[in-house]
Design a protein around this nucleic acid. Structure first.
Lengths: 147, 147
DNA sequence: GTGGTAAGTTGGATTTTCCAACTTACCAGT
DNA sequence: ACTGGTAAGTTGGAAAATCCAACTTACCAC
């Protein structure tokens, strides 16, 4: 019986943003840093790899490469709707890092338009209660290896 | 003036779970698959890399390695509280993948204890409204490169 | 003419990852 | 007793990804 990996949207997502520097590149873009040199400095990615990542993020439709000057040609990278939608993934990861890894004062703080400092909470759309892992059950899942 | 990368909890988080196979390994653990061979098959990770990842996840306190049999010794990996807390990051990533990448029927579906199929939504803890990127402002952020 | 900025590209070294085969130790069936 | 299967790795060598510093092109400012 052949074995295949589990079919899963997490794996699909990681095939787009799972390589090193992709998510930090998006972090910079979300913070408003949209040009090559600055993204390179702020992330620490080497320039050749950053070129590859930006190209991929453009090809996969997360960023758009816009020319903001013609002579000489200069570009900036702006998020598409698909790219924007990843913001909550980064907020989620940031919140986890804040709580369990960094442990000092959060290095980055966002304010919500409601006036409060943002504390992102994941809730169930239906009942609006926070999602706790122990209150979840798998309904359907790809089963690559029958028991 | 020396350049340093931005100090950030996303980077801190990725230093723990940003390598290839870490998040898929955690996905399996959250789905209840907690033994080496099965995790290897379901993720597709090669065995040596999986060994390294599991070791790191144990060392960083996301998983606990429990012996469930002594002769011969056999182990299983169970999430700690820190590990559990990553579940919402994976839900967030899964939701993004479902919506923008996979586009077919979601391969994995969770039910919430309230009875509904889970649709995870990120809200502001204070006002309980969904977090939309355009309603956020950076309050404080490490500035590695002064303008 | 000199220096600086922006957005890359290049070559070569280093590090990670992949892959298949091997190991140890037990159990189950014939 | 022998054969096959399972579990949890370990090993050696090849392949791929990443890192790094230097180079390029084209403009502008002094």
């Amino acid at each position: 019986m052949p074995h295949r990996p589990r079919q899963c949207s997490i794996a699909d997502a990681l095939s787009i943003v799972g390589e090193r520097w992709s998510l930090l590149t998006l972090r910079e873009v979300f913070l408003g840093v949209r040009r090559f040199d600055r993204i390179a400095r702020n992330t620490g990615a080497s320039r050749d790899i950053l070129t590859a990542r930006l190209t991929k993020l453009v090809e996969t439709g997360l960023l758009e490469k816009k020319q903001y000057e013609t002579h000489p040609p200069r570009y900036e990278y702006v998020p598409t709707e698909t790219g924007q939608a990843l913001h909550s993934v980064l907020l989620s990861l940031m919140d986890w890092g804040d709580r369990y890894i960094t442990r000092t004062d959060p290095p980055t703080v966002w304010a919500h338009d409601c006036g409060a400092t943002l504390r992102p909470v994941m809730v169930c759309e239906h009942c609006r209660e926070p999602v706790r892992p122990e209150e979840l059950t798998v309904v359907r899942v790809d089963q690559p290896n029958p028991e």
